[in-house]
Design a protein around this nucleic acid. Structure first.
Lengths: 257, 257
DNA sequence: CAGTGGTCTAGACCACATG
DNA sequence: ATGTGGTCTAGACCACTGG
């Protein structure tokens, strides 16, 4: 962790948990912590006090506190890392992803810059499922690219792209140069291509996805995948991505195509 | 509840929870219950034994059991009703909702018939937000229609539609006759219309949504909304719907429009 | 090694829905 | 009045991470 200021316990004082103020205690705690995040007192990346200390300070059991923390993790505001601590995540804005638009045009409101982190480019043999997606034979060589999109230093989108290696012999070198898939297409003689089908579904983050997005495993997420064809109707890309449920809104429509 | 056979405790026997068989006990319990659901032993609509009995039968604490039940509720397999019991929900199939297609064509796989339940049609004054959605003045009269889609007897989609009342003076009578919004449009001289923009986002179910969909409040859900225009570019409908996260997949693309 | 979050126990009281 | 799920307590041990 590069920047993990620990937040003093006193930050959480000033709460009166009337045992029956008509709302469960854990929910009052959730609301209080959330308000601290939204007020900017708990900044993204900072570390909360340990659960034991925090529970004692709030005058509740650890289990009660954990119920509040759990919900905040599901909502994408906190991330727990075993053996390390609990950190504020809180992407402060909501993405609007418009289908058919470049990623950079998709951010409607944001308070931090968007950056891209290329995790790896490698070659693999196509699994049965992937072979079907790309319309190639099983075991055929494919290029596998993984990228991460960050809002400030908070990852909000992890994306795996697959390409038939045969079509893109120079993928690595070209991508390294410009960091742009569109440019790699162009350099290989593909001027026009289109997104054929986009599927959006919901699920719960795997350990892998959670690690990439810095979420607690099991947090609800969006899954999106799509296929791109060249001008001749041949599949040149299969893409598959994952967002925290509360960080994105998808927009489709005639105006966006 | 019309049909809530209680499931005998013995159904849940046959488990050996080695305290350290490398997976948390609550997760083993979750997997076991899920497998009973998927095997058809726990049928949709049936009621589980009380938490106290079930916990004792499984040889764990109620809290441990509840952790398993909670996850199954988030996943949409179970519904808890306070003071009543826990019921199997489990829509056995996943919807594919293709934008621009009638709802009935959207079901790819299903083991039960799709039905529609019209909850109400009423007239209201437009709130500020709704007025903006429908491009009318605040306080203008609108028609509000709520429908529920069921797979078998399991609700999988709740949908609120709003129409400018001025355009549809005979809405109630016409809708009562055919139960079709398209027919109401047609009867009012609107032959062609189109969906202008579709937005999909994620969230956690409110008490209202949870009641309609028979979910536990707080369960993650999809929210979808869209606007329909007539041939002259005037807004004739604003629609807003809610699905359990795990019961639907959205499909967009040139082929579906 | 010390500190963290993850898991689990054995109780208890409450609000709620139903008969 | 009974049984349900919802909440909460006061402990405990574990696996993991990092210095």
């Amino acid at each position: 962790m590069l920047d993990t200021p620990e937040i003093p316990l006193a930050t959480f004082d000033g709460l009166v948990f009337g045992p029956r103020s008509d709302m469960p205690i854990w929910q009052q705690i959730r609301d209080h912590i959330l308000s601290l995040i939204e007020a900017g007192i708990l900044r993204p990346g900072s570390q909360l006090p340990g659960e034991t200390h925090l529970a004692a300070s709030l005058g509740v059991t650890r289990i009660t506190l954990r119920q509040a923390l759990q919900q905040l993790q599901n909502e994408g505001h906190l991330t727990a890392r075993k053996g390390v601590g609990i950190f504020v995540r809180s992407p402060p804005a909501i993405f609007s992803v418009r289908d058919g638009h470049p990623f950079r045009e998709n951010i409607e409101t944001h308070s931090a810059p968007i950056t891209t982190d290329t995790r790896f480019v490698k070659r693999e043999a196509a699994t049965a499922e992937l072979a079907e997606r790309l319309r190639v034979g099983e075991g055929v060589e494919i290029v596998h690219l993984r990228r991460l999109r960050l809002l400030g230093d908070q990852p909000v989108y992890v994306n795996d792209k697959y390409f038939p290696a045969e079509r893109f012999p120079d993928f690595e070198a070209l991508y390294a140069e410009r960091q742009s898939v569109t440019d790699v297409f162009r350099a290989h003689g593909i001027a026009a291509f289109r997104r054929v089908e986009t599927r959006i579904s919901g699920g719960f983050s795997t350990a892998d996805e959670a690690e990439n997005l810095r979420l607690t495993p099991g947090t609800p997420v969006f899954h999106m995948n799509a296929r791109n064809e060249d001008g001749n109707g041949r599949t040149i890309e299969w893409t598959s991505g994952c967002w925290p449920l509360t960080s994105v809104e998808f927009v489709f429509g005639p105006g966006s195509r």
